[in-house]
Simulated assay, not measured.
Amino acid sequence: MTTHTIGTREEWLAARLKLLQAEKEHTQRGDELAQLRQGLPWVRVDNDYRFDTEEGEAALADLFQGRSQLLVYHFMFGPDYEAGCPSCSAIADGFNGVTTHLANHDVMLWAVSRAPLAKLLGFRKRMGWSFPWASSGGSDFNFDFNVSFTEEQERTKGVDYNFQHTPKFEWRSGGNAVERAFATMAGTDVPTYHRDRPGMSAFIREGGAIYHTYSTYSRGVDGIWGMYPWLDRAPKGRNEAEGPWWRHHDRYGARQVSA
């Protein structure tokens, strides 16, 4: 017997119409936030960042591939990982279908990680992905955009992530259950896993110069996580009371069907 509220179709419709108004306000607020993002001042990028790509060494300008706009997903895949972060992998599962549309709307989408290119492409093949992926392991790109940190920073100086400073990372060699599970799926230990973080950054090329226009981190990437909008409309929602449940899409075992 369900414990959820049961009602008539008329009661459902009345509640749905009330919710519809709230949804419209949420959509309008989302439009306003998009305008605020686009209104941020641009910051010129003068560093000569270099990346490893399937076509060889590339500069940041090369990643635009003739478009004026570039979106970078900072994919958690450090040099000592054996596989990509399961959360970043779940987000990246939605990239294949949008890259073509973005490219034909003057926007290039790339994933960028610090792991060697061979590891990235091997994992991409395993996952069945095709979006472009570059290694930034030979440059300070990840460090300058606050998604990678050294062990010394974590242990002593603290890190700047998600627009706030953590004076000293809480060093836990074993981590909690979720951290241990995710680190294990990435083929590394918890401290090493934490030296790379998720995020996305936007750039524009205009007048021969490149500008950084936007970055977001942590839960700021929820909006590009394709499964979340679906789950938010499912009867049980994200249903994460016991913590994250996802894994690499080729590592789900047989699931018991609910009665």
Rank of each mutant, 00 (worst) to 15 (best):
M1F: 07
T2L: 08
T3P: 12
H4C: 10
R9Q: 12
R9M: 14
E11S: 06
K18V: 09
L20H: 08
Q21L: 14
E25T: 11
Q28S: 14
Q28P: 09
G30E: 10
L33R: 15
A34D: 11
Q35M: 13
Q38P: 03
G39P: 09
G39F: 13
V43P: 03
V43T: 05
V45P: 13
V45H: 11
D48W: 01
Y49G: 02
D52S: 08
T53W: 13
E57I: 06
A59N: 14
D62N: 11
H74S: 03
H74Y: 00
H74P: 02
M76S: 01
G78D: 02
P79Y: 04
D80T: 08
E82A: 14
A83V: 09
A83F: 15
G84H: 06
C85P: 06
P86L: 04
P86Y: 03
S87N: 13
F95T: 05
N96P: 15
V98A: 08
V98Q: 12
L102W: 07
L102Q: 14
H105I: 08
D106Q: 11
L109S: 10
V112T: 05
S113G: 00
P116M: 07
P116T: 00
L117V: 07
L117N: 07
A118D: 14
A118T: 11
A118I: 12
R124H: 02
R124N: 01
K125W: 02
M127L: 08
S130A: 06
F131G: 02
S136D: 02
S139I: 01
S139C: 04
F143W: 07
N146V: 10
V147S: 00
F149V: 01
T150Y: 04
E151K: 06
G158S: 01
N162I: 09
Q164K: 13
H165R: 15
P167W: 02
K168A: 06
F169S: 08
E170G: 11
S173C: 03
G174V: 05
G174Q: 10
G175D: 04
A177T: 04
A177N: 08
E179Y: 08
A181V: 15
M185L: 15
D189E: 02
T192Y: 04
H194G: 09
H194A: 04
P198I: 06
G199Y: 05
S201A: 01
F203E: 04
I204Y: 09
I204G: 10
R205Y: 06
A209Y: 04
I210F: 08
H212W: 15
Y214M: 05
S215T: 11
V221G: 11
V221P: 04
V221R: 13
G223Q: 10
M227T: 15
P229D: 00
W230C: 07
D232F: 14
K236W: 03
K236Y: 14
G237P: 04
G237T: 05
G237Q: 08
E240H: 12
A241S: 14
R247K: 15
H248Y: 09
H249N: 14
H249T: 10
R251L: 12
Y252P: 09
R255Q: 12
V257G: 10
